[in-house]
Design a binder for these strands. Structure first.
Lengths: 247, 247
DNA sequence: TCCACAATTTGATCTGCATCAAGGACGTAT
DNA sequence: ATACGTCCTTGATGCAGATCAAATTGTGGA
């Protein structure tokens, strides 16, 4: 959240385009030793970033786009266990194996740090480890918040909770005046939403249209959402005052 | 897991009994600076260890017993979001607020460190922070594993997954020869199990008795379980080869 | 502009688990 | 012993969401 202050254009190593992007690590003057081991990389929507059989050679920070973490059972049932949004950390420093699949949900730009040198920096620079601990604690809170969603909420509440993740982010970025619609694009398909929410895609479709019919949200296109009143959506999610995923 | 090597008798500050206990931190010679700020504390089954309105004044390590972390919605629906077993870390270093209720599920002994001095040590001793990062990453993996259970598994698979947590611990402790039953006590009531699994207590009761009827487990008393064949239980949980909660 | 295909919606039906409601089993205090 | 409370089991019924099946909309490429 303390990132996104400035953006820079970066050269992607996969394509010839210079992307607008910024990494909160690279913005931190105390961490400028990271500069020498960093490079930017992009993945297009649907592309695999890492999986159980193909471990990552880097760690890094999402600068643009959305990536997802999912686990799959042998019979094909899958559950998304996390979303990586801009400024989120990618990778498992000090761990060899990835225990879930990391996939680009939209086009994604990542500020990468070579894994081995980064792990060396973790030993030499306590501040890096402290920062990672902070971020990991936040992720743990988010995961536990989501366990309540998965275990106890109704389909309608699940959808509302999901929309809140983006609505709250958008509200911050828009610094939205109270009487203005909050507006954002859905970065996930109905099927991906169902994987995140532990539902079927049909139920997702029905419930999101029910929220629309009830005037909780507007949906000019199937992937674009307007929220006239955030507090109503909050109530639909069954949350008290704050309590959002990324609060 | 690298703890539990030796045990010591410790004086509890709440009662006059000396408890058999050991803390993995206190066993680590590199961390002996912790000695000066540590004390032991016990909680009896059902007692609250911390909650949203009553933050903790310490962090620490569970040495005996089981504690639970839960979140509750205004209307009373609750979801257990974690279990603290011996050697697990309790508390949120660097955070003021507890975001869920911590309750002793059985009688619990905790090796406590005063919060402020512990946070000071975190600044001075990088090793402490590194260790916490490791543990937090493990907790995050466990939480995500559990998200798959909550979002995608059937009631029967949920029960099997739950029993596996204890069966796998017991298997390690018993170093059980292949042809020997794995044996353990259930530290949770049917209702607590239902809170952990996102089910009702009736469904928990029915499914656990179904597993018994099918010979997957034996249940000499309602709180004691024998597992004749761990691999059958694993299959019931829908997991592949390893994949357990605390693998 | 049209076609092919993917994403989404909508309808009809089915089912696993929740809910509601008793009834046992066990422990503890009287 | 007996009574009471807590925990657990078992049965009957209902419903939210899954499943199966089309129809519709949206999209990128020739």
């Amino acid at each position: 959240m303390d990132s996104l202050k400035t953006t820079v254009n970066v050269q992607c190593e996969n394509c010839t385009i210079r992307h607008r992007a910024v990494c909160s690590y690279c913005n931190d003057s105390e961490l400028d030793r990271l500069d020498s081991i960093k490079y930017y990389k992009t993945f297009s929507a649907g592309q695999s970033i890492a999986n159980t059989s193909l471990p990552m050679s880097f760690v890094g920070s999402v600068v643009t786009g959305v990536a997802s973490l999912s686990q799959t059972m042998e019979d094909g049932r899958t559950q998304m266990v996390g979303m990586l949004l801009p400024s989120d950390f990618v990778g498992r420093p000090g761990r060899d194996h990835v225990v879930y699949d990391v996939v680009a949900t939209t086009d994604v730009t990542i500020c990468c740090f070579k894994k081995k040198p980064f792990e060396q920096l973790m030993i030499e620079m306590p501040k890096v480890v402290q920062r990672l601990l902070e971020m990991t604690l936040d992720e743990l809170d988010a995961a536990r918040e989501w366990m309540l969603v998965l275990g106890r909420k109704t389909a309608r509440e699940k959808i509302a909770s999901f929309l809140l993740i983006f609505a709250q982010r958008a509200a911050v970025l828009q610094k939205s005046k109270p009487k203005m619609d909050i507006e954002f694009d859905l970065p996930l398909s109905r099927e991906q939403m169902s994987d995140y929410l532990g539902l079927t895609l049909e139920t997702v479709s029905r419930q999101i249209n029910a929220l629309k019919k009830d005037g909780i949200v507007e949906m000019p296109t199937k992937r674009h959402i307007l929220v006239p009143d955030l507090s109503i959506l909050l109530a639909e999610a069954g949350d008290d005052a704050d309590g959002g995923f990324y609060s």
